[in-house]
Every structure is written in structure tokens, then in C-alpha cells.
């Protein structure tokens, strides 16, 4: 074929797409699982909240800020030894997930903290006045009330992970980003570049639509 798509190997694209989905799914899962409790802890230990602990908050907040200020590309490289230690490899899907999680968790934790701050203080007070424990307040009042905001944060995080995952192509992370870098950029195969970017765009669109739907479904305001 001499057409525009002459360089495209659809099997490669398919495999890369699958890798991207695996990287996204795996890293999103761990990011949500780790970021949610960290976000709750950030909220609870901050000023005038239930477990106000300036020292704990200051420390946690500092670590989160450091991780958030490191450019992701740098994080990818710095994390290689740790990644090898955890997953046995720094390549492919498995090698990409740890840096993705470390990059996105602080981001998501901040979004969770912000979503919790949006919950009317009066609701915490009313629940406290009923004789609830702090655990009950968090699990039964705060998190359900903040759910739409947390879902919106999860959506933003998922989309950020798509672009982070593409970047992990730099260290041989596999996936669509890897393909775009190796063929589209380094070998000037514009068609590969266009197709991968289009696929990423579609993925981002789908994530946003799904996220918006979830947010609307759980919003009762």
C-alpha cells in the first residue's frame, strides 16, 4: 500500500492500545485506592477539622507538594530502581504502573481533599451532634456527600494518567505513546502519529463522558 496509512501495522496498534488500557486501568486502580485515604487524611488533619494535627498535615502536605512539583518525565527516570524492585522490570506495562501511581496519587489526594472541603460544615456538625464516631462521620456522611466531587476528581486523574502513560513511552513503557514516540516521532511516520493521537483523543473523550455521567448520577443537589 502506498496510501497515507502505509506505515501502519494494525496489530501493533491494537497491542499498543491494549497496553495503554492496561496501564490506565492498573495505575488508576492503585491511584484511587491510595489517593482516597491520603486525601481524607489531608482533610481531617487540616486546620479546624475533626483531627486537626498541624504537624501531620504539614508533613503530608509537603510530601504531596514535592511529588507534584517533580516533572513526570524526571519521576519516570528517578523511579526506575524502585520500579525494578517492586515489579522486577522497568519496561512494559508493569514497569510503567509504579511511576504512574506515584505521579498521580498526590494529585488525586489533593482533589479528594478539595472535594471534602466542599461539604457543608453543618453536615459534619449535625452528624457529630447525633453521636457519630469520627469513622462514621467520614464513611457515612463526608464521603457520600463528597462523592460527586471525588468522581469528578477521579475523571480528571484518569485523563491525566492517559497523558502520563503516553509519556512513559520515553522509558519504554509500551502503549500508544510509545508507538507515537518510536515510529511517529523518531522515524517520521506521520500516519502512525496521527492514528495514535486520534486513539488517545477518543480515549480521553470516553473517559470524560463516563466521568460526567457518574457525577450527574450521584449529584442530588
Amino acid at each position: 500500500m502506498n496510501g497515507f496509512f502505509s506505515n501502519i501495522d494494525w496489530a501493533d496498534i491494537g497491542q499498543a492500545g491494549l497496553d495503554t488500557l492496561l496501564m490506565l486501568g492498573g495505575s488508576l486502580l492503585f491511584t484511587l485506592l491510595l489517593g482516597l485515604p491520603i486525601g481524607v487524611l489531608l482533610f481531617l488533619t487540616s486546620k479546624r477539622q475533626l483531627l486537626a494535627q498541624p504537624l501531620v498535615y504539614g508533613l503530608l502536605s509537603f510530601v504531596v507538594n514535592i511529588l507534584r512539583s517533580v516533572p513526570f518525565v524526571i519521576l519516570l527516570i528517578v523511579m526506575i530502581p524502585l520500579t525494578v524492585f517492586v515489579t522486577g522490570t522497568s519496561l512494559g506495562v508493569a514497569g510503567a504502573i509504579p511511576p504512574l501511581v506515584v505521579g498521580a496519587t498526590p494529585f488525586f489526594a489533593r482533589l479528594v481533599e478539595t472535594a471534602l472541603r466542599e461539604v457543608d460544615r453543618g453536615i459534619i456538625e449535625a452528624t457529630q451532634a447525633m453521636g457519630a464516631t469520627t469513622t462514621q462521620i467520614v464513611l457515612r456522611a463526608l464521603l457520600p456527600e463528597a462523592l460527586p466531587g471525588i468522581l469528578a476528581g477521579g475523571t480528571v486523574t484518569a485523563i491525566t494518567l492517559v497523558s502520563y502513560a503516553a509519556m512513559s513511552g520515553v522509558i519504554g513503557g509500551g502503549g500508544l505513546g510509545d508507538l507515537a514516540i518510536r515510529f511517529g516521532y523518531q522515524r517520521f511516520q506521520t500516519d502512525v502519529m496521527v492514528v495514535t493521537v486520534l486513539l488517545l483523543l477518543i480515549l480521553v473523550q470516553l473517559l470524560q463522558m463516563l466521568g460526567d455521567r457518574l457525577v450527574i448520577h450521584f449529584s442530588r443537589r
Binding site: 457543608d120 453543618g122 453536615i123 449535625a126 456522611a141 457520600p144 456527600e145 462523592l147 442530588r220 443537589r221
Partner: peptide
């Protein structure tokens, strides 16, 4: 301001 839980 009532302080009802909006999600319930």
C-alpha cells in the same frame, strides 16, 4: 440551614 445530607 437544616444541615440535611443531600445524598440521602
Amino acid at each position: 440551614h437544616f444541615n440535611l445530607l443531600s445524598a440521602k
